[in-house]
Design a binder for these strands. Structure first.
Length: 196
DNA sequence: CCCTGATTCGC
DNA sequence: GCGAATCAGG
């Protein structure tokens, strides 16, 4: 596969959306995440705000200059954080309109598969405490503001006006942020597991 | 060990 | 230009 204009477009879009290289690669098909990353760099759009890696890169080369003599200076000024084309300001939630290219399948299921409230049962007091703490500075997103990378942990009563979603950065793979992942997947405490 | 992006370098 | 190999880090 080669980088056709179309594919590059998808790449740009997804990368801009904050999708990880592996996901993009999977979507595009025929390429590895390395290829995607390589392309991203070649295109000039590399650093995103955050994600999985930092972008300090100041003296790494020095540290690993032993095995492989890499003569490379890293001109990485990154002076100011300019305002990007602001992909989705307010009314373009996760499931916005997509040209339905050869890629793109399912980002947000629908709006229904909401996480189950974890009746505070046998959950670590610590985990709960952490959640409470986190909810303090949660982003309080509404259903339509959720994206692939916002914690979808519901807070409050859906029938009330006081209902929102955590919205903090999700844990890799999971639909929730770290704190909520903690209380979400940790069940199995009451039910003594029988045999194994 | 899983994942992430970053970089290098032979092609 | 491309991307596997490698690196660095969460």
């Amino acid at each position: 596969m080669s980088w056709t204009d179309e594919r590059v477009e998808i790449l740009k879009k997804m990368w801009g959306e904050g999708q990880s290289a592996s996901v993009i690669a999977k979507e595009l098909g025929g390429v590895t995440r390395n290829a995607v990353i390589g392309k991203v760099h070649r295109l000039g759009l590399s650093n995103r705000s955050s994600g999985g890696t930092k972008a300090p890169a100041a003296d790494k080369a020095t540290a690993k200059a032993a095995p492989k003599p890499k003569a490379a200076a890293k001109p990485k000024p990154a002076p100011k954080k300019a305002a990007e084309p602001a992909p989705k300001p307010a009314d373009a939630p996760a499931a916005e309109a997509k040209p339905v290219s050869p890629a793109r399948k399912a980002i947000i299921p629908a709006g229904q598969p909401l996480p189950p409230q974890p009746s505070a049962n046998e959950i670590s007091p610590e985990a709960l405490a952490k959640v409470s703490e986190v909810e303090k500075d949660a982003k309080r997103l509404n259903l339509m503001e959720l994206t692939e990378k916002t914690c979808k942990w519901p807070v409050g009563d859906p029938a009330t006006d006081d209902f929102w979603f955590c919205g903090l950065p999700v844990q890799q793979g999971k639909p929730y942020c770290e704190a909520h992942v903690g209380v979400a997947f940790q069940p199995m405490s009451s039910r003594r597991d029988r045999k194994r």
